[in-house]
Design a protein around this nucleic acid. Structure first.
Length: 188
DNA sequence: GTGCAGATCCCCT
DNA sequence: GGGGATCTGCACG
């Protein structure tokens, strides 16, 4: 029985709270008639004018516009000439912008298809990084700014997954390193 | 197992 | 023209 899709009120809360609560929920991707899915196991929160590490720290531009737009929409950007990264817009009423970076998922459904899209065998390095999971799910900028609160090509549902959560500093940034806005499923 | 260089392109200054 | 919310392969041991 399918679980409930996370809705606007879920995403209309502080970005780091949403990032924490997304751990353990189910990311679903429908592509070419295939349904791929995995448990979200690592996230990071990025804020607005208050967060120097965020793309939205400075003013709104063409690239970061989704972070200022409606919550529950995707924000997918291209980085380092090779990789796409999947975010979902989330912020409370006091913030001007914000999004949660999905850094890692535990693959559950249509794993063979993810391997085909990644052009890699094995499960170990399939979706354990933001660029890897975007590739495994066939995501690029054509999926930027789509509504993830409705059933479609990309959405997130509740799950009954249980586990404890660690929070740490964020990865790969040069500013805002003091904030503990990275959330990971406790290993083992 | 760890560590580092190189790839590679889009957006912003 | 510079740098980036990364990944891969290769070196080393």
């Amino acid at each position: 029985m399918p679980m409930k899709i996370l809705n606007l009120s879920f995403y209309h809360r502080s970005t780091h709270q949403v990032a924490r609560d997304l751990i353990g929920s189910l990311l679903v991707r429908e592509h070419d008639g295939i349904i791929m899915a995995g448990i979200i196991s690592e996230t990071e929160a990025y804020g607005g004018a208050n967060d120097p590490a965020s793309h939205a720290y400075n003013k709104k531009t063409m690239r970061n516009a989704p972070m200022f737009g409606p919550v529950g929409h995707s924000y997918i950007y291209f980085i380092y000439g090779n990789h796409h990264c999947l975010n979902i817009v989330a912020r409370d009423a006091e913030s001007n912008a914000g999004a949660v970076l999905i850094r890692s998922i535990i693959p559950l459904q249509s794993i063979d298809y993810m391997q085909k899209l990644r052009a890699k065998n094995g499960i170990k390095n399939l979706t354990n990084g933001p660029g890897k999971l975007a590739q495994a799910l066939g995501l690029d900028r054509s999926h930027n700014n789509i509504d993830m609160c409705r059933k479609g090509s990309l959405y997130i549902t509740q799950s009954d997954f249980m586990g404890s959560i660690d929070c740490t500093r964020r990865i790969g940034i040069s500013k805002g390193q003091d904030l503990l806005w990275r959330f990971v499923l406790n290993q083992k």
